[in-house]
Design a protein around this nucleic acid. Sequence first.
DNA 1: GTTTGCGTATCGTTC
DNA 2: GAACGATGCGCAAAC
Lengths: 248, 248
Amino acid sequence: MIRAQLLTPDPGGLTTHLTTHTRTRDGLIQIAGLAEVTYHGRATSTAEIGASLVILKRGGSLQIHAPTSIKPMNWHPRTDERSARVEHGHCLRHASRQSPEELVRVTFLHPHLALDVHEASFTLSDSEKQMQDALVRHPELIEPGLTVLDRELLIDSGGIDLYARDAQGRSVVVEPKRGRATQDGVSQLGRDVATVQKSGVGAVWSILAAPFIMAPALQERRARGLAFRKTGAWPDAPAPTVLPTLFD
Amino acid sequence: MIRAQLLTPDPGGLTTHLTTHTRTRDGLIQIAGLAEVTYHGRATSTAEIGASLVILKRGGSLQIHAPTSIKPMNWHPRTDERSARVEHGHCLRHASRQSPEELVRVTFLHPHLALDVHEASFTLSDSEKQMQDALVRHPELIEPGLTVLDRELLIDSGGIDLYARDAQGRSVVVEPKRGRATQDGVSQLGRDVATVQKSGVGAVWSILAAPFIMAPALQERRARGLAFRKTGAWPDAPAPTVLPTLFD
DNA sequence: GTTTGCGTATCGTTC
DNA sequence: GAACGATGCGCAAAC
């Protein structure tokens, strides 16, 4: 969900970050910190240097929020041309368009934090296989100390997506869901656990790994005594920025 | 500048953070993460789950931004009542107001980061009021020989922005438009002229003063026998950069 | 592309 | 409080 997070980024790093976003026009970037903003176009405005929240969205829109008023203090609905560069030791962002002719310039004097947010539904639209890949590479996203033993394991009741062993040495059946975990997923996991237990490997633990769970599925899960762990995994994630936390 | 920063805050910590902000009504809080939002009020209720940026500002306003569109996907301009509490293991935010009766509820399913930002200042120029100021100081921008008699003159049909006398001694109603003159502006000018004429001051002339006029407005203007003069006025301009020219 | 009309418009100012 | 007008309105449909 949050793909990158830069703390007090240097001008060069922030410029690169913004340029990448300009190229891909993907996701949402937010920069909090000290900034100076000027606007020329239908009106003219200048903002004194101050704390602000700069938001760059997918379509190329830009908005700068101050601590008061629900409206942004400066904005740009869409851009024909955007650029970021280092000037006088600061990252400088240009955004302009014609019809009407407008220009917004943001100087990041002291960027405190830059975030790269991605829509859940977007990342979740990646295939379940890719999520599986990511979880095999980073099983700690599901639970610390987890070791993946097998994947796509065929059993009588169907197929187990991920078969693992946890820190306590218990066998664990993992059912990853790229989207919302539903009652259906809970039922499937229950069937799989029952089948594995019948095979006589001893105590079997189970984990439903999904970004979120629907209320009915949560109740069903409780009734069956199955675990759910809030898990998000994306193929591009270089390191787990979102640490797994127990859902409830 | 940035006063607090909570990484993957737990429901209790986030609730405390929000409650403090509610009490002080100070600064700006931003929360990035997976959230569910419902709204009831002027529009039909909606429910969304996804990556979002929640911004709480000083006056009590709330807005939730999705990765697309410059506008927030949900918002609340000001609040009469706000609260935060833990429910079902999540931080839940209520914001409501009466007149109109509205309610926004945000469930922070997975808050990734909470920020507390402070202070920024801002000035805007080129408003219609400032254009009026400039025209009062330089009525020749509208028409040579024009004398401004009054501004913001209240009459039955509303308010006349500028009331003047031209070189021939005629009463003139001036409607300045900062941007393009539209049919709406022509109608308003027509109403004002009619009202003034009824008051019995004699012949009344009228001028729509704007940098541009739209074709439909131009036709409407012709049909009503009103004058349009291409006029631009900016407070900072030391000399009239756009000389007044008769449009047609 | 431009123009028209709507919106959970927002935001002042005026009454 | 309600009412009215301006807005860097934004936004989508119609032309």
